[in-house]
Design a protein around this nucleic acid. Structure first.
Lengths: 198, 198
DNA sequence: CCCTTTTCACCTAGGTGGTAAGAT
DNA sequence: ATCTTACCACCTAGGTGAAAAGGG
């Protein structure tokens, strides 16, 4: 009923433990979440959103080339962790017509950004998170979310650790290789290393 | 119940007979349509869209510094003239929360672009048009548009003649002066005309 | 010492009118 | 002649990781 679209890319990152940068003004995810939905009622209305939940109750740190657990996480942190898809609310037909992508979702560590509900997801650095997809049927005059009729989906390949700077160089290289906005850091200039010496 | 937001700017253009460029791949309007809505039911769902209709049945041409009528318009031309606001459908509360803008609406003369329904409005060059706003309450499982419960609004200040190249230099100058994307054509360099001669 | 913030050069992405060539 | 198209330099707008500076 729900498929993760860019699974192969997510799997590449997941193999090295995905990291996502968080900043005060908000940073997009890369890869970003993208799904194919099916089995909805074409003429009913749905709200589609993503939230992000803690995978475990630990701090993590990158030490000796590995991620290791390190002490307990803080308790319930304030801040919004829910991001409404910009097309919401919309018909089942709309959601099934093409992929449902979250390319503009932003992650932040700025707790003051909580008022921008639906704009940014507030996370804590060096904690491990699981994004989840929620599909909720909306009825006229009802609150859209939460609702007893919400279907929730989670793909383990999309888990990540929030960081303020990349820790694992393999992850950095995967980002540079695949994110178009990081093209400026690709080594397109190997021929420069060919010197006239010997 | 509906207010045109950037009325002063529209009025400046209207005084010189507004022109809007149309191209094959589509051109944004400048100024763009922007409205303030009030009086809706906050929890009901509405679709908001814009269409563009002929003001008269004539070709127009720019001759001797004036726009003059010139022969009859062709009959019903094919092509989509309806543009759904990207937030549609949504709640009355959503539409009233802030201005409802159509900054990404595009005008085209490409009749083949009609399949991109809701993406571009297809017009005929050298004809005079009137944009209109439509607000329609959507009920579960009904077609969104057209409906007997549509409210329509038209502001004469937003009338324009579609062109493939600007005819009136006053209009060109107003576009350059006010559209941020045309900044490159502003005369910021008056001091360059001060030569060492004389 | 470890983590966060700021700033930067370098990109992607795409919206302007001018201009010259093309079409009718 | 008159209108349309394609291409261009020049912008706006904003997403990258690197590196240096800041903070506890």
């Amino acid at each position: 009923q729900v498929m993760l679209n860019n699974y192969p890319l997510w799997a590449k990152f997941h193999k090295h433990q995905t990291e996502m940068i968080i900043t005060k003004q908000g940073r997009r995810m890369f890869p970003f979440l993208s799904f194919n939905l099916s089995g909805l009622n074409p003429v009913a209305h749905y709200t589609v959103c993503v939230d992000v939940v803690l995978v475990d109750q630990h701090h993590w740190r990158y030490q000796g080339g590995k991620w290791v657990q390190c002490g307990k996480a803080e308790g319930n942190m304030p801040g919004n962790r829910l991001y409404l898809h910009p097309d919401s609310p919309n018909t089942g037909a709309h959601w099934m017509r093409q992929e449902v992508s979250f390319g503009k979702l932003k992650l932040t560590n700025n707790k003051g950004a909580s008022n921008n509900v639906g704009q940014m997801i507030v996370l804590q650095s060096l904690h491990k998170y699981q994004p989840r997809l929620h599909v909720t049927e909306v009825k006229e005059g009802e609150e859209a979310y939460p609702s007893p009729h919400t279907h929730t989906f989670a793909f383990p390949e999309t888990q990540f650790i929030a960081v303020t700077a990349y820790q694992n160089a393999d992850i950095t290289q995967l980002k540079i290789d695949h994110n178009p906005f990081a093209k400026g850091f690709r080594d397109n200039f190997d021929q420069m290393y060919t010197t006239s010496e010997g």
